[in-house]
Amino acid sequence: MSSTTVVIGSRVGLHARPASVFTHAVAQCGITVMLTDAAGSTINAGSILGVLAMGIGYGDVITLSSDDEAAESVLASLAELLERELDRP
């Protein structure tokens, strides 16, 4: 299993637009990615409803993980995405 920890960079956290951008990127990557918050709750990162329900805010630390062989580069790319401000059109 590969995993990476990331600090959320969007000032509004993973709400509305940032969650949509992120879950779309997960869907496009072609592998199953799981998201775990600081409390230890884990969801499928491709589920926008799951991501929104977690209430992840700016500066929160989350972990992305996957069992796929190609996961390292995908997780690194998704982590870079989450570190940026995603709430701009």
Rank of each mutant, 00 (worst) to 15 (best):
I62T: 01
V7H: 09
E69D: 11
A38G: 05
G59W: 08
D68E: 14
P89M: 04
G50C: 02
L64T: 05
S47T: 09
G55V: 00
A27S: 14
V33E: 07
V51R: 05
G30D: 03
Y58F: 13
E85K: 13
T23Y: 08
C29P: 03
G57D: 15
V61G: 02
D67V: 03
V12L: 10
A16R: 14
S20C: 02
D68V: 07
A79K: 04
H24L: 14
G55Y: 03
L82Y: 03
L35C: 01
S47W: 14
F22Y: 13
V51I: 11
A25Y: 12
M54W: 05
A53I: 04
S20W: 08
D60Y: 09
S3D: 07
A16G: 12
V74W: 05
R11S: 11
V6Q: 00
V33W: 02
T4V: 13
R11Q: 14
E85F: 02
A53N: 11
M1H: 13
I8Y: 07
L52Y: 14
L75D: 06
L81C: 05
V7F: 11
T32Y: 08
N44G: 04
R84H: 10
I48C: 06
T4P: 13
V51F: 08
V33S: 00
I56G: 12
Q28E: 14
L49T: 10
